[in-house]
Amino acid sequence: MQLYNTLSAKEREALIDQAGKDRLTISFYKYAHIGNPQIFRNHLFIHWDELEVLGRIYVAKEGVNAQLSVPADNFKAFKRHLDSISFLKGVRLNIAIEQDNKSFLKLKVKVRRKIVADGLDDGSFDVTKKGVHVDALKFNELIEDPNAIVVDMRNHYESEIGHFQNAITPDVDTFRDSLDLIEEQLKDHKEDKKLVMYCTGGIRCEKASAYYKHKGFKQVYQLEGGIIEYTRQVREKKLENKFRGKNFVFDHRRGERISDEVIASCHQCGKPCDTHVNCANEACHLLFIQCEDCAREMDNCCSDNCKEIHALPYEEQKKLRQGKEASNKIFKKGRSEVLKFKKSPEAFSS
């Protein structure tokens, strides 16, 4: 039995168009003790491939982290399968605010050392002693609480296009970078302030809340379900929306519109814009913000050099890439010097 993808992204895209079925973009996570992640990985792939599930799933001894696209008419079968797994029974599913049938084009289930790269020694603290989960209503109250400090646990390119009012948005490249930075900056408030955290779907805050309690913070809170669940509750219960801009998401959509406000700028011309793209030059693939005018002028590239390379015949481009490695780790997701209007906030700003 094949436990890997046999179709390219383009082939899968054509099949989705041909099927003409609506799909749901879903995310969930669960910290648990998984004895053999490889066997569990294979189990998930076999069952989800039969249900035409696509997405990116990480499995580790500490649990599972999943971002998925599921055919709407297979959702009940998908949910039944989740409920058949003891530690996933009744797990909260974050359903995307904006649906896109092509949010994922392959099924990738990977075994990792951790389900989120946090760089922590989990043996040094109890990950089950997490902070207080709060819903959208309580979170709105905490945002206005003078004794609360609201912290965005996401990376700089996520908070740049959208964040909560009054939130501190650390200028970091990784989740791990933010952990020590936040502790250092808030070390004088471990006793007297409420530490209130949020992220996309809740998974980063789940670990961080236990970590900060271990580090001596007495009042630790986290937004349950993250920005995705907050938005659902705000719309369903008609609460005040305190999120400004877009929520960055890790699929082909790259963002969900939460409010009409555009708080970011095109990295090439400086006009208001919050649309993330990847440079069309495959040897670069830099993630940055680009408006429609610049996309036309630059042929969807981040620089004149990349534009020249992208204009070459494909075989010539392949030769230029040969033996070279380019990744988002190298280009720091929007920190390239070619981007004239990339904002560079202070390391710990609000």
Results as ranks from 00 to 15, higher is better:
Leu137Asp: 15
Asp260Trp: 04
Val277Gln: 08
Asn42Val: 07
Cys279Ile: 07
Phe78Leu: 04
Ser103His: 01
Ala77Trp: 01
Gly226Phe: 05
Leu137Ile: 14
Val53Thr: 03
Pro345Cys: 07
Gly35Met: 05
Leu24Asn: 06
Lys79Gly: 14
Arg176Cys: 09
Tyr198Pro: 00
Asn94Pro: 02
Asp251Cys: 10
Lys238Ile: 06
Lys89His: 15
Glu158Ser: 04
Gly270Tyr: 08
Gln222Arg: 01
Cys266Glu: 14
Arg176Gln: 14
Asn305Leu: 12
Pro37Thr: 01
Lys193Val: 04
Lys129Arg: 15
Gly216Val: 00
Ala208Phe: 02
Leu51Gln: 02
Lys319Ser: 05
Lys110Thr: 06
Lys194Gly: 01
His276Met: 10
Cys279Ala: 13
Glu206Arg: 00
Val116Ile: 10
Ser103Asn: 01
Asp251Phe: 09
Ile39Arg: 14
Gly63Pro: 06
Tyr157Asp: 12
Asn101Met: 05
Arg112Ala: 09
Glu261Met: 10
Thr275Asp: 15
Ala167Asp: 11
Ala117Gln: 14
Leu286Ala: 13
Asp180Ala: 09
His163Glu: 01
His214Leu: 01
Gly270Cys: 09
Asp152Lys: 06
Glu141Thr: 07
Lys61Asn: 07
Gly55Cys: 03
Gly123His: 13
Asn328Phe: 13
Ser124Gln: 15
Met153Arg: 02
Asn155Cys: 07
Gln165Val: 15
Arg296Val: 07
Ala280Pro: 04
Glu292Gly: 04
Val109Cys: 05
Tyr221Gln: 02
Cys199Pro: 03
Ala117Ser: 13
Ser159Trp: 14
Ser209Phe: 02
Thr25Val: 15
Asn281Pro: 00
Cys199Asp: 03
Ser259Lys: 04
Phe164Trp: 07
Leu142Gly: 01
Arg244Tyr: 03
Gln165Met: 12
Glu183Ser: 12
Val59Cys: 02
Ile95Val: 15
Gly270Gln: 06
Glu98Cys: 05
Leu68Lys: 00
Phe217Leu: 02
Asp173Ile: 06
Ile227Leu: 06
Lys238Pro: 05
Asn147Ile: 11
Ser8Ala: 14
Arg12Pro: 00
Pro71Arg: 00
Thr231Ala: 11
Val59Gln: 05
Gly323Met: 05
Asp22His: 15
Asn74Lys: 12
Ala60Gly: 02
Ala72Tyr: 07
Glu50Ser: 09
Lys110Cys: 02
Ile16Val: 14
Gly225Val: 02
Ile168Leu: 08
Leu3His: 08
Asn300Val: 08
Glu292Leu: 10
Phe175Gln: 09
Ser327Gln: 03
Thr128Leu: 12
Lys30Gly: 11
Phe250Val: 03
Lys307Trp: 11
Glu325Cys: 10
Ala32Pro: 05
Lys76Gly: 03
Met153Gln: 06
Asp192Leu: 00
Phe45Tyr: 09
Ser350Lys: 14
